[in-house]
Design a protein around this nucleic acid. Structure first.
Lengths: 143, 143
DNA sequence: TTGAGAATGAGATTTATTCTCAGAATTAAC
DNA sequence: GTTAATTCTGAGAATAAATCTCATTCTCAA
């Protein structure tokens, strides 16, 4: 219940685009939970209430949400792109279990600081961090 | 010219698999350069010399190379999976330019140490790091 | 109210990757 | 060397996520 709506509308207007009903529905469904999501999950979720929003529109709206700084592309899992919130969420890194797919989110300003330093050395302007590791989680290791 | 061949053969034998001609060709082409690659690039490279290696075999061999610890899945660029060497190469992180696609490779043991600590806290067993950032490179920023 | 441009749904299309299958290669035992 | 059991292979079909097309509908400023 932040003002994603405001942010999104501002972005759209600045590009000469419109905050239409389907776009509102998509935005609100995306921000109805805090979870990562992929297009299929989002589509199913939306379809529970709104039978008139198409996959095409979802695929077309996601890049707008990304551009507006509301979400970002996250992991790729089972051949599908996944997304996560950036607006209203602290940045975090991911520990992904290769066995069960579980995602552990951990905050770490430290790693970002180091990356920032390294980027400076290379005259590189960081827009977005992508930090994580794959491995085996606690539960799966015990099996 | 390390002994990727030996490593690969050892791995294959341990799984009851065979180091066949196509697999040798693929392995050697992969290790003929130090560059990241995707399947198309690898296929073209191989086809210059060997008209009889199919895409299917390349797709089937890559997971074996990954499992053998010789390469790892790296970035995904333009809807294609990319791979990079792990055998014989120090680990590094990637700064990826969103404009021109340039990839800057940087070493950083520091970030890995931090991730290791965090993983310990969560009883997570890291198999592979995935560290990087997207942004704008020096050249593109000047435009 | 209206008109110009933007947005939509439906379904076709694209394309990386995976699968199928009949024949070929491999390897160990004889 | 032959054989037999198994693994591999190439070719092309199949799959499926993501993109595109297009005729129609919506939006909003004037």
């Amino acid at each position: 219940m932040g003002n994603e709506n405001l942010v999104f509308e501002k972005y759209l207007v600045s590009k000469g685009l419109k905050l239409t009903k389907p776009r509102k529905i998509i935005l609100n469904t995306v921000f109805a939970t805090h979870e990562h999501f992929n297009v299929d999950e989002l589509y199913d979720q939306i379809r529970k209430k709104h039978k008139d929003v198409s996959r095409a529109t979802i695929y077309r709206t996601i890049p707008l949400l990304v551009e507006a700084g509301l979400i970002k592309q996250s992991l790729r899992c089972l051949a599908k792109d996944h997304y996560e919130h950036t607006y209203g969420h602290n940045r975090h890194l991911h520990l992904i279990c290769e066995k069960c797919g579980k995602i552990i989110e951990v905050e770490s300003k430290e790693t970002e600081n180091i990356l920032n330093k390294l980027a400076k050395k290379h005259n590189f302007n960081i827009k977005e961090f992508n930090i994580g590791a794959k491995g085996i989680c606690n539960k799966c290791r015990k099996k």
